[in-house]
Design a protein around this nucleic acid. Structure first.
Length: 502
DNA sequence: AAAAC
């Protein structure tokens, strides 16, 4: 005879930790709470209950400070109340009850030490609670689906093949890439990394994701991205990605960061100064040497970080463009010294159709010849009228401002057929460095990241583009002569360059 | 801070 209690949150004051909850979901929670008679408070000490999606006590304590006398409850509790039409007990949703001792949870913060290495948004699949329950309990994407057995569920991307163009989940990958770029351009690299890793999973997954239950079993996809994927499965899109694509600020930041010599921090600071166009940037008072060149050559080199479908990137190189340039360089370098060994690397070697630059390793069997090699190559190609500008140069002996210990030079190279200046990166390696330079400069960025992490954590070795070392006090070089040998020593499966596109 | 994978 009782009708449903429509105000089952009556007089309940709630403090909501919004961190890691997708915007949509926050809106839904706030709406539901006030609709059902509850209210949101901005101070945890005035709340009856604290709602969160977070699971790490150390993490939660950052948002509620020393407040330990309140129950902390998972946001799923709200979903459950809605579906039951009544306020239900906290018990099954308690992250921390009131009686519990505050001691064990204001302590440890060590989980963060591996920041570069571990995705803050990831979790081990076993310890995960079912947080993906949507407001729509009857959506048909909720089937419990096992992971595809062909998929290697690991957080090391270098252990599984990742093709350049995913056969599955392509639209989803595209949307998540938008969000990843937005994070990157906003200088949230840790968060961008979370997306990067989720994208890598989806690109290597051997079939379309069909259920959010499937997603939560995958290592490397945490709660927030899991939610976004769930909403993608329901609606066919991710609203945040759609919003980003409409956002002028995002496009401007991407444009600025695509200037050679301008990174995300500078792009942000210029945007905050009110700059909106490339012309605005040109008037900036103290441009660095690199930025002056980047702006001067902007129309030639504009493709640095811009994705293929960006309105600003029309000048990426086809494989034929790259080959034209490569053949010219090869001819001239061989004429200079027939002993030189040339090896194109980077995205071109991984099979990319459209490339922003050409990365080229040059080596020589004679160690004595190597130190003068780069100068000679640059001189020859400059005299030949090909190299028009030097963009960046790093000598192996300089200790600061060096990407790795290999000598290298980035130049603007005039492509004869198009008369467009293209970026060519020369990397010099001795014969003993050649194999690791090959592995290190073929990429992808994410592949290299996971390879180094795997070497360090699983094998107690340090992999760098100039060599493989033991991870000991004085590092000891482990000699390698081929790419396969490096893979064997590290114990990672051999992957063709085309399968390192994570 | 930026250049690279």
């Amino acid at each position: 005879m009782f009708s449903e209690n429509l105000h089952f949150f009556e007089k309940l004051s709630i403090f909501l930790i919004e961190t890691k909850i997708p915007h949509e979901k926050i809106k839904f929670l706030k709406n539901t709470i006030s609709l059902k008679g509850g209210f949101i408070v901005t101070n945890p000490s005035t709340a009856d209950v604290i709602l969160t999606i977070l699971k790490s006590p150390a993490r939660i304590s950052r948002y509620i400070g020393s407040e330990t006398r309140k129950p902390i409850v998972s946001i799923e509790w709200v979903d459950k109340c809605v579906s039951k039409g009544a306020r239900i007990e906290f018990v099954d949703y308690l992250i921390r009850g009131i009686e519990e001792d505050a001691m064990d949870w204001t302590t440890v913060e060590e989980e963060e030490e591996d920041q570069d290495l571990f995705d803050e948004d990831s979790n081990s699949s076993s310890s995960r609670s079912p947080i993906y329950t949507s407001e729509n309990e009857h959506s048909d994407d909720g089937r419990d689906v096992d992971l595809d057995p062909r998929f290697l569920n690991t957080s090391y991307e270098c252990l599984r093949p990742t093709p350049l163009k995913p056969k599955f989940n392509a639209k989803l990958v595209e949307l998540l890439e938008v969000i990843e770029r937005a994070r990157e351009v906003n200088d949230q690299w840790r968060n961008a990394l979370s997306y990067r890793r989720a994208i890598a999973v989806l690109k290597s997954y051997p079939r379309d994701i069909i259920s959010h239950k499937e997603i939560k079993k995958i290592r490397g996809i945490g709660s927030k991205i899991g939610y976004q994927i769930e909403s993608y499965l329901r609606t066919g899109t991710i609203t945040e990605a759609e919003h980003i694509l409409q956002d002028k600020r995002f496009h401007t930041l991407e444009l600025f960061a695509s200037i050679f010599g301008v990174g995300f921090k500078t792009a942000l600071s210029w945007y905050r100064k009110g700059y909106r166009t490339i012309e605005d940037c040109k008037n900036h008072p103290n441009l660095t040497k690199a930025q002056q060149l980047g702006l001067q050559l902007f129309d030639d080199l504009r493709e640095k970080t811009l994705p293929q479908n960006s309105p600003f990137s029309k000048r990426r190189m086809s494989r034929e463009d790259v080959e034209e340039i490569y053949n010219i360089i090869k001819e001239n370098v061989k004429k200079l010294d027939p002993g030189c060994v040339l090896q194109p690397v980077g995205g071109y070697r991984r099979g990319k159709e459209l490339n922003g630059d050409l990365d080229l390793i040059i080596s020589h069997p004679d160690e004595e010849r190597v130190p003068s090699l780069l100068n000679d190559v640059i001189t020859t190609l400059t005299e030949g009228g090909y190299i028009k500008n030097l963009l960046y140069r790093a000598r192996s002996e300089s200790r600061t401002g060096i990407i790795d210990h290999l000598e290298k030079c980035f130049v603007a190279f005039l492509q004869p057929s198009t008369q467009i200046k293209r970026q060519v990166d020369f990397i010099i390696a001795t014969q003993s460095q050649f194999a690791s330079a090959l592995v290190g400069w073929t990429g992808s960025r994410q592949y290299e990241r996971s390879l180094r992490r795997y070497a360090k954590r699983e094998k107690k070795m340090v992999f760098a583009s100039h060599g493989l070392f033991t991870n000991t006090k004085p590092r000891i070089l482990i000699p390698t002569s081929t790419e396969r040998e490096i893979f064997d020593i590290l114990g990672v499966p051999w992957l063709e360059p085309e399968m390192r596109n994570c």
